[in-house]
């Protein structure tokens, strides 16, 4: 069968099954279990109405339970058991083993660095781009260009930037842009990604490059939502462009800035692909998610791997809650 037809058929069956589920489940509830007739018609209608929401929510609850809640519980269980002893309960042994590994603390430190640098720089650049592109004719073209990296997968971006940092021996022409420029200026080529500590920042730039577009689009919309009259009032009050930006505009979009910041923070806490594709955690660039992957799938140590996963989840959760809270507050 033609793959396109196959796709359409799949869609038709999937959507049909969904519609069928809601329709027939509803019918059975109303006509068979609690029919709206007979001596108990009123009571039956009330009961059916109590059950109906759960009936409709069931598919979503089931899917979320299977693919979200169950894995969390299972990961927690695995993190408390040991592979060598055939899965026996070992309490917090995996955690204490992990804590004693310098590689874990390196990942922890790097994650915190990412956490500070990437959201701050993405939001700052995004805000700058949003403000600067707002009033110029080719602003939309500039915005599209800045937004484009958003469409690239993290691995793809990692590969692109690996080429930027590419190093060739001194006597061959440099194909990495950075080294080509350096060579052009008379410098010696550097192996950028192997310079400890600073290589973290070379990796962060990739994510900043991607997330700036996201921040810009959201903040640009927020900036446009500022009442023009407040800006004019500030002009009449004698504020210069910097004062208008920092004292009138930025405070008015502060809730949006917080949401953008925390959303990027969540992405950063889970960062894996870029590090995996570019350094795989070597040269002191390890991060938590890549550490987890190493333990879980390379070393096959699901105990410590799951413990790392739980740590990541514990770090993400409070920020996630705060983010949702802020987003809701802004919607009101």
């Amino acid at each position: 069968m033609n793959p396109a037809l196959q796709g359409l058929l799949t869609i038709a069956i999937g959507v049909g099954a969904c519609v069928g589920y809601f329709y027939f489940a509803n019918q059975i509830l109303d006509k068979v279990i609690f029919p709206a007739r007979g001596p108990n018609a009123g009571r039956n209608i009330n009961r059916a109405n109590h059950i109906r929401p759960w009936l409709f929510l069931f598919p979503a609850i089931f899917a979320l339970g299977l693919y979200l809640a169950y894995p969390v519980v299972e990961t927690l269980r695995l993190s408390l058991s040991d592979r060598e002893q055939g899965g026996a309960f070992v309490g917090l042994d995996n955690y204490s083993q992990m804590m004693s590994e310098p590689k874990f603390w390196e990942a922890m430190r790097n994650n915190m660095l990412w956490l500070i640098v990437v959201p701050a720089m993405s939001t700052a650049f995004g805000l700058l781009a949003a403000q600067l592109t707002d009033r110029i004719g080719w602003g939309n073209i500039a915005k599209s260009l800045i937004f484009m990296p958003m469409a690239i997968s993290f691995v793809g971006a990692g590969v692109i930037w690996k080429l930027v940092y590419e190093t060739r021996p001194d006597d061959i022409a440099q194909i990495g842009v950075l080294n080509a420029i350096l060579a052009g200026l008379g410098g010696a080529p550097q192996t950028w990604l192997t310079i400890p500590f600073w290589n973290n920042f070379f990796l962060m730039i990739v994510l900043v490059w991607i997330q700036t577009g996201f921040a810009m689009v959201i903040l640009s919309a927020a900036l446009r939502g500022i009442p023009e009259e407040t800006v004019e009032a500030a002009i009449v009050d004698g504020a210069n462009p910097f004062q208008i930006f920092f004292k009138i505009k930025v405070p008015q979009i502060m809730p949006t800035i917080v949401v953008v910041w925390t959303t990027i923070t969540l992405t950063v806490l889970k960062i894996f692909d870029i590090v995996f594709a570019m350094t795989n955690g070597q040269w002191e660039t390890q991060v938590l998610a890549n550490y987890m992957y190493d333990k879980l799938f390379r070393a096959g140590d699901w105990g410590v791997g799951s413990a790392a996963a739980i740590i990541i989840m514990l770090l993400v959760s409070p920020i996630l809650v705060w983010n949702v809270h802020n987003a809701r507050k802004e919607m009101r």
Binding site: E229, T230, E232, A233, V236, D237, G238, Q252
Partner: peptide, 21 residues
Amino acid sequence: VPPSERGIAMVFQSYALYPHM
């Protein structure tokens, strides 16, 4: 001459108060 140096003050239709102050 820029608005602030003209010695004028303006009251706007929608008040234009700074909402965060």
